[in-house]
Write a protein that binds this DNA or RNA. Structure first.
Lengths: 221, 221
DNA sequence: GTCTATAGGAAGATAGAC
DNA sequence: GTCTATCTTCCTATAGAC
């Protein structure tokens, strides 16, 4: 590539190292109440991701778990609540990544690390992410609203970071709302297309997207 | 903004004018065989977009059309075929936009016009686009494969354009496959978030994204 | 081409035994 | 906490009259 430190890679190793720290390594479903509930959550993720919430029956979910459909109701109030459990966890992770990256001093580095960590997580957990970001319409109003709060929070924090970069003279002045939305959009959409035969590893994708993020904000180098 | 002709807007009016010509103005469902079939297609678009294919019943579709569920089977072999009719049209439009833009001489202008036209179409027809790009899993294997051919075609043509820009010395050398995917990803995802209360008009969004496309390829200016 | 009526099956959720 | 059995509702698709 041609343009300065943005793409020569020296900085990218550092971004990848810092970003990798922000990607939660703890078992994703550690907070789920019981072992059986976790089994159902994992089965729900797989089936919801491939057939969608409405395309998935209880019998699809329990297939392979050795459980009955009735067992689900011991651990969740409904099929919809199982979906919410999954979605809420995903949104929480996203907000945590945005928070941790935003806490960094240098806005340039913060933006790169944010994008790297988010995209890497989306790629590594693309099955989970597909459910988290593409099945919101199947939730009831209360649950949908709860996630909307988290989403708005993440969006706002990205805009704050962008403004910080502009004030610091690191990013070009511009449409903060539009560019912020585009950056998150880019990251979320990874879950849609990143499939079983991906064109690059989560790390490689994170590196590329961290560069694209800098270019999008018109980093002045 | 700060960096040269890319963002100062002089060129953007020209991009918008050229791009607007590529956005099909013909009635989207003009090719659908009969008036009643068109009515069903339109109803299908609305319901599939809000509740998804599997979340939509035949009774949801026909509600408000004055037709019965049986009427649908006169015009389509199944609910799935109705979805395919919609999806196929959307993919066709996308390929047409990519084709028309790719035919332009200057790769910089071609890329901008491509992004402008595609994003503007996605925003203007976000209801249709939601169905086209987010319900493919509900199609049968044969229909899914037919769309995959069109999708691959569009992806390949975008990569050809990117390489043309690199060879011409207009774009920075780089990860053509990854950046091409990211550009399409950015455009497609508009359909997911562009809702009833959008933050900008389709034209404004197209302009912004045409600038982001240039930045993504590292236009050397 | 449209309707009413319905077949035939699968859906989400619950009852009650263990 | 888990099961089997089942309730009730809703689903896609078809039959047959007009």
């Amino acid at each position: 590539m041609a343009r300065g430190h943005v793409v020569t890679g020296t900085g990218l190793d550092r971004v990848a190292a810092l970003g990798a720290e922000l990607v939660p390594r703890r078992e994703l479903w550690a907070d789920v109440s019981s072992k059986t509930a976790r089994k159902l959550v994992r089965a729900g993720v797989e089936t919801f991701a491939t057939r969608g919430f409405h395309g998935t029956s209880l019998r699809d979910i329990i297939a392979g778990t050795g459980l009955s459909t009735a067992a689900l109701y011991v651990h969740f109030r409904s099929k919809e609540e199982l979906l919410f459990e999954i979605s809420h966890r995903g949104y929480t992770v996203s907000v945590e990544i945005v928070d941790a990256a935003s806490a960094m001093d240098d806005p340039v580095e913060a933006l790169q690390v944010l994008m790297y960590a988010f995209v890497r997580w989306q790629a590594e957990h693309h099955t989970v992410a597909r459910v988290v970001f593409y099945q919101n319409d199947a939730l009831n109003a209360e649950h949908r609203d709860a996630l909307l709060v988290l989403r708005r929070d993440a969006e706002r924090k990205v805009r704050v970071l962008l403004r910080r970069g502009i004030v610091a003279g690191a990013f070009a002045d511009g449409d903060v709302r539009g560019i912020g939305a585009a950056l998150l959009s880019l990251g979320i959409d990874v879950a849609r297309w990143y499939g079983p035969r991906p064109s690059g590893s989560p790390d490689e994708l994170g590196r590329l997207y961290s560069v694209l993020a800098l270019r999008a904000v018109g980093v002045l180098d």
